[in-house]
C-alpha cells in the first residue's frame, strides 16, 4: 500500500487526516515541522505528501519545503492544502512542484478522493 506523509503543525487536523487515510488502508506518517518532514523524506520513500504551506512553524519556508519535496529522489505526488486561495498563491505552489492545490476548508472524503486520484495519475499538474 502506498506510504503517505501528512505535514501540518495543527496536531488535531493532522491526526484527523492521518487517521482517515489510515482507515482507507494507506500507510501514513505525520510531521509537524520542517525538520521532522525533511528527516522522514530523507529516509523513507513516500508515494504522496500532503502539506499545508501556511504552517506557523514553517512560515515563508513552506514553499521551500515544497521544492525540497518535489526535488527529492523519490519525487512523491504532492498535495498542497491551504486556506489561502489567491491565484498567486496557487501559482507559486504549482511552481514549487505541487501536483494538486486543495483549498481549505474541505472534507476528509474529498481529500480521500483527491489522494486516490492523484496516486493513480502520472505526474500531471492539477488544480481542484
Amino acid at each position: 500500500m502506498p506510504r503517505l506523509l501528512v505535514i501540518d503543525d495543527d496536531a488535531d487536523l493532522r491526526t484527523a487526516v492521518a487517521e482517515y487515510l489510515l482507515s482507507l488502508g494507506y500507510e501514513v506518517d505525520q510531521a509537524a515541522e520542517r525538520e521532522e518532514a525533511e528527516a522522514l523524506l530523507e529516509h523513507y520513500a513516500y508515494s504522496l505528501v500532503i502539506t499545508d504551506i501556511s504552517l506557523t512553524e514553517l512560515g515563508v519556508e513552506g514553499f521551500d519545503l515544497l521544492k525540497t519535496i518535489s526535488n527529492s529522489n523519490a519525487r512523491p505526488k504532492l498535495i498542497v492544502m491551504s486556506g489561502y486561495s489567491g491565484p498567486g498563491h496557487r501559482e507559486r505552489a504549482r511552481q514549487c512542484g505541487a501536483d494538486v492545490f486543495l483549498q481549505k476548508p474541505t472534507s476528509l472524503v474529498t481529500l480521500g478522493e483527491v489522494v486516490r486520484t492523484c496516486l493513480s495519475l502520472p505526474g500531471e499538474q492539477k488544480e481542484l
Binding site: 484527523a16 474541505t106 472534507s107
Partner: peptide
C-alpha cells in the same frame, strides 16, 4: 515494525 492504532473514520468532517 510500526504498530498503528486503529484509524478513526471521520466522514465529511471539515478540514481547516
Amino acid at each position: 515494525q510500526f504498530e498503528r492504532s486503529a484509524a478513526v473514520l471521520i466522514p465529511n468532517r471539515e478540514i481547516g
